[in-house]
Design a protein around this nucleic acid. Structure first.
Ligand SMILES: Nc1ncnc2c1ncn2[C@@H]1O[C@H](COP(=O)(O)OP(=O)(O)OP(=O)(O)O)[C@@H](O)[C@H]1O
Length: 747
DNA sequence: GTCACCGTATGATTG
DNA sequence: ATACGGTGAC
């Protein structure tokens, strides 16, 4: 069977094993994603499984598209033996998507069973934040004292763990005195009720409501269990509890499940991902007859030996890591595709296999310059295409200087993330129009557009309609419809709202028959959005016009490629798009992205910029050992993306957000042992930052001050001599202390 | 009442 | 750099 010829023996076994659940817990580059892809093709082609009965879950839409494409190619490949007719055409493709879009599609069909409308809208995190701000206003909570993003985080964490607001309130009470949590509970409840009124779901609801649906309506669950007889999940180490519950429910009937992941690459604990899901997978299926098939592969087909060494050296510093996990190794059977088979240090130094490079730079500008220069050199001298190079960093804001350097040098580049296309204000405005047309209950979006572009309906008028609607227990849109009954409006204001109402009536009609593309075109023209922007005539307004044009193109393209051309489906696509999804990996350009976005990808050349204490590891992770280990895994993920060329750079001093950060080289640098390997380590004499040594005075540490006595560190910043800490002393008073001047003792 | 402008505060990682 | 709240002109 020749689709299996691209696999090694153990991969092949995993592809062919269908007698019981499969767990693949394997290192980077070991071919996990490849196994899933081939397994899907194998199920269809060799076992005659109906593609309709297969669900594969990926981490991003982009990964889903790629997998679809590969599966399609495997299915249509000329096999000589079998094949679905001479055209090799595939009649149907399996369902390959992210958790979020999978759940969105399920809910679109069946959510009415738990009391929601099927035409719900999906709120992204900006919408979520705006709605929470509204809640704070209505609950009379001062948003300066209690920040909205903190509530958003609390609510997300709760939902990721399937805790609805009722349970949240109960847990809060059980905990006793916790003012902040009590407040969060109130906000959560209010927020959730508002979502319901708006007929909206946020991202986390998509999963949570699906689980709720499955639990409350067994016949719905059964329907999907019969539909998804074979389930495959990629990147399983980064699933959270709700995703775990979803998967487990679906798989519980047939138990044809295959999960794949690597706990050393778990980097999403901050949004409740839990590696126990993958580590305890065997327990979940302990009663299966042949027991769970477990595969632990550590052969890394991606990287060269020196890169593998760095990764191995680094990851053992994670103390919570399973001691029996082992190291990744170069596969014996690896074909000399682009690199040589086995390599020793001597060969590496001769330049057959490039040695990883560690480079210190005085500041972030020179760092960017250096990265750009090296990229250009590799392109010219070694003929490495730009699209096979990437620059990774910890925080989006770091991309700016890099962009500038690449732009100035006229080297093509793409930035993944930062502000995604669909997060731009002008795009969100138009999307809000569409949402209201489809789901008039969406008051958040309605409020957003009532005066966009400015049409004389100001804050006060809107507030009056809101009050009127609340008093009469109707939605804001109902309030707008009954504008004649709203008291205290000037005739002019009433007239303006009536015009707006008529506009919306007209477009609600049009939306029934027109495709999204045409609808958006007409709408933008009629409301004079572009005219308004032209009037503003600034640099940003020009960009906005471009973006709007791009949106119209996107909508037309959508119409062409999709069967269901409704604005509804378009909106769904738009809401679920992620940063990485819009990245064009075939463009001839260097890719700039965060380490998080790099997961699952591979490049010939990888630069990791900003390898400094405070950035990688990020300063917010200093105080928790667990978080520090996650930062280390992040670094591990970055390193293991590189096939042949790896550069680690760090600076002495970095300007960001108008501040200057004086950094030490990241502890991870020393841990990788790159200094011993690198050809040009510490190139810039004297300007290199010293390599990090562990700070003794960390948050949480108890100290004794010669004057004030015993106290606990609650805040710490700076390094070495310059370190400043904030301490709460036994009496309760807080003091800021510079280590330089105080003779502190650690206890 | 509405809108455009200016000052101030404030920044991780994401589907 | 962007998101807010306050201010003055219409
Ligand atoms: N048996 C094999 N023979 C040759 N190349 C392979 C084999 N298996 C995998 N590869 C190659 O190794 C690289 C990594 O494969 P893949 O992305 O499937 O690994 P992965 O385990 O999912 O990686 P990661 O966890 O790091 O994202 C790919 O370029 C793939 O083509």
């Amino acid at each position: 069977m020749d689709i299996l010829k691209d696999l090694n023996e153990r991969q092949r076994e995993a592809v062919e094993w269908v007698q019981s659940p499969v767990l693949i817990l394997s290192g980077p580059g070991s071919g996990k994603t490849r196994v899933i892809t081939y397994r899907i093709a194998y199920l269809i082609k060799e076992l005659g499984v109906d593609p309709f009965n297969i669900l594969a879950v990926t981490f991003t839409n982009k990964a889903a598209d790629e997998m679809k494409e590969r599966v399609y190619r495997l299915l249509t490949a000329e096999t000589g033996k079998r094949g679905n007719g001479e055209t090799g055409k595939v009649s149907e493709m399996p369902w390959i998507a992210t958790f979020h879009s999978t759940c969105a599609r399920i809910l679109r069909h069946d959510i009415y069973r738990i009391g929601f409308d099927r035409n719900f809208v999906i709120y992204d995190d900006l919408d979520q934040l705006n709605l929470i701000k509204e809640c704070l206003k209505e609950l009379e909570i001062d948003p300066k004292e209690y920040r909205a993003p903190a509530f958003a985080a609390a609510i997300c964490r709760a939902k990721e763990n399937l805790i609805d607001y009722e349970s949240y309130i109960i847990y809060t009470k059980a905990r006793g005195e916790d003012f902040y949590r009590e407040m969060a509970a109130k906000v959560y409840e209010h927020y959730q009720k508002k979502l319901f009124k708006n007929n909206a779901l946020d991202f986390d609801d998509l999963i949570m409501k699906t689980v709720e649906l499955f639990r409350e309506k067994p016949e719905v669950l059964e329907k999907y269990q019969e539909r998804f007889i074979h389930i495959l999940v990629d990147e399983y180490q980064d699933t959270n509890h709700s995703q775990y519950a979803f998967t487990k429910l679906l798989a519980s009937k047939y138990k044809n499940i295959c999960v794949v992941g690597d706990e050393d690459q778990a980097i999403y604990a901050f949004r409740s991902a839990d590696i126990r899901n993958i580590l305890e997978f065997e327990k979940d299926y302990a009663d299966c007859k042949p027991e769970v098939f477990v595969l632990n592969m550590m052969e890394d087909y991606r990287s060269t030996q020196p890169i593998i060494d760095l990764a191995n050296n680094l990851i053992v510093y994670n103390e919570e890591r399973r001691k029996d996990k082992g190291k990744i190794i170069l596969p014996k059977d690896k074909k000399p595709a682009s690199s040589t088979s086995t390599v020793d240090a001597e060969e590496a130094s001769e330049g057959k296999v490039p040695a990883p490079v560690l480079q210190a730079l005085p500041n972030e500008l020179e760092e960017a310059e250096y990265v750009m220069d090296e990229a250009r050199r590799l392109h010219r001298k070694e003929r490495i295409p730009y699209h096979d190079m990437a620059v990774f960093y910890r925080v989006n804001a770091q991309s700016r200087v890099l962009e500038d350097a690449f732009r100035k040098a006229r080297i093509p580049y793409n930035v993944v993330g930062a502000l995604g296309f669909y997060e731009h204000r002008e795009i969100k405005d138009i999307v809000a129009y569409l949402r209201v047309l489809i789901n008039p209950k969406d008051s958040l979006s309605l409020k957003r557009i009532m005066n966009v572009p400015p049409r004389g309906i100001g804050k006060v008028t809107v507030q009056k309609i809101v009050d009127f609607s609340n008093k009469n227990k109707i939605t804001l849109w109902e309030g707008v419809k009954k504008i004649e009954n709203v008291r205290g409006l000037s005739p002019r204001a009433q007239w303006l709202v009536k015009n707006f109402r008529n506009l919306m009536f007209k477009y609600m009609e049009l939306a029934k028959n027109l495709g999204v593309g045409e609808l958006i075109n007409k709408l933008i023209k009629e409301i004079g959005y572009i005219k308004q922007l032209e009037k503003e005539d600034t640099f940003t307004s020009e960009m906005r016009i471009e973006n709007l044009k791009e949106l119209m193109d996107a909508a037309h393209q959508f119409e062409e490629k999709s069967e269901n051309k409704s604005a509804q489906v378009f909106l769904e696509d738009v809401s679920l798009i992620s940063d990485i999804d819009t990245w064009d990996d075939k463009a001839k350009a260097v890719t700039l992205m965060t380490l998080h976005n790099a997961k699952g990808l591979e490049f010939d050349t990888v630069f990791i910029a900003g390898m400094e204490e405070g950035f990688l590891p990020h300063s917010n992770a200093f105080s928790e050992e667990k978080e520090l280990e996650e930062e280390r895994r992040l670094c591990y993920v970055g390193i293991t993306r590189a096939k042949r060329h790896l550069y680690l750079t760090y600076t002495d001093r970095r300007r960001l957000y108008g501040n200057t950060y004086w950094g030490l080289a990241s502890r991870f640098i020393a841990e990788t042992g790159v200094e011993g390997l690198a050809r040009r380590s510490l190139g810039v004499g004297g300007e290199a930052a010293p390599i990090f040594r562990r700070e003794r005075f960390k948050v949480g540490v108890t100290i004794i001050h010669p004057d004030f006595g015993k106290g606990k560190i609650i805040k710490a910043e700076g390094f070495g001599e310059d370190r400043k800490i904030e301490v709460v002393f036994a009496g309760g008073e807080k003091k800021k202390i510079a280590l330089k001047y105080a003779n502190l003792q650690r206890i």
